[in-house]
């Protein structure tokens, strides 16, 4: 564990110098935070029949009793709230892919592998280096969203509907697992490709279940209750741990060294 922290520290020192990468990491979360706030605010200002009708077909008892404008805000707010589950997937993918593929491209991997560092220590350090910033960014952006909602929603009920128990459970318990899942997938893929973008693109497949949840909630197929969110978070945690173990198994030091570091 000690060596994983040493690697983590080095990764962050390197990251600090990568200005372009930092911009790539920070801009999408910024947009994903501003967009929901602006959208929820504007919908609350403009009556929209379509959204009101959509609210009527969604089998969500928490929407009962809301006015047309409130319904518009609540439905859109709930949808946009899922953006914060995409954030822990975006940030670590960028960092992790540069972390492994970058070592290969800069030929720094051989001295690193020559040091007495076990594979799990190396990968844990690299995973944490992308996981921690992604959680800080996600939770920071979510905090901004929560505070902004307090100011722009039309009623307390809309606020409670958007930030329901399910959303909080997924944000606090599900997002670390989602981030780890994404990091593990990216690390596993990074060991096999020689371009960070390729690694990111392949790992992006992890986003698909979140998009499915987005659509399912929009169509009224799924209502994100705290229990459902808890079950989903637990399943994600198992999947994430399995994925991390898989990434360690798939990280063939020798192959990586002979194929890429020479």
């Amino acid at each position: 564990m000690h060596k994983a922290l040493i690697i983590l520290q080095k990764e962050w020192l390197e990251l600090r110098g990568e200005r372009t990468l930092l911009m790539t990491i920070l801009i999408p979360p910024l947009l994903l935070t501003i967009l929901p706030i602006v959208a929820v605010y504007l919908i609350g200002m403009t009556p929209d029949e379509d959204t009101a009708q959509l609210g009527a077909v969604i089998a969500d008892p928490s929407l009962a009793g809301l006015s047309e404008l409130e319904l518009g805000q609540a439905v859109m707010g709930k949808q946009f709230g899922l953006m914060f589950l995409i954030m822990p997937l975006l940030v670590p993918a960028t960092i992790a892919s540069y972390s492994i593929v970058g070592e290969k491209m800069r030929r720094t991997l051989e001295p690193l592998l020559a040091a007495p560092v076990r594979t799990w220590e190396l990968l844990l350090g690299k995973c944490l280096a992308s996981l921690i910033p992604s959680l800080i960014i996600t939770w920071g952006a979510a905090a901004v969203f929560v505070l902004a909602l307090r100011l722009i929603v039309l009623s307390d009920q809309v606020y409670r509907v958007i930030l329901g128990g399910g959303w909080w459970v997924l944000l606090l318990l599900g997002s670390p697992s989602l981030a780890l899942l994404m990091v593990a997938a990216t690390v596993a893929i990074s060991g096999r490709v020689n371009d960070p973008r390729t690694a990111q693109q392949i790992a992006a497949v992890v986003v698909v279940p979140i998009l499915a949840l987005f659509v399912a909630q929009l169509l009224g197929v799924v209502v994100l209750t705290p229990l459902l969110a808890l079950i989903a978070s637990t399943a994600l945690a198992f999947l994430a741990i399995l994925a991390f173990a898989g990434a360690i198994l798939l990280f063939e030091r020798e192959n990586i060294l002979t194929r890429w570091a020479s």
Partner: peptide
């Protein structure tokens, strides 16, 4: 190694400190 394989964005001291800790 044949290629020095140093972290270019880190200083000389940071490079050495990192490896010494490893």
């Amino acid at each position: 190694t044949e290629s020095p394989g140093l972290y270019e964005r880190l200083s000389a001291r940071q490079n050495l400190f990192f490896f010494a800790r490893l």
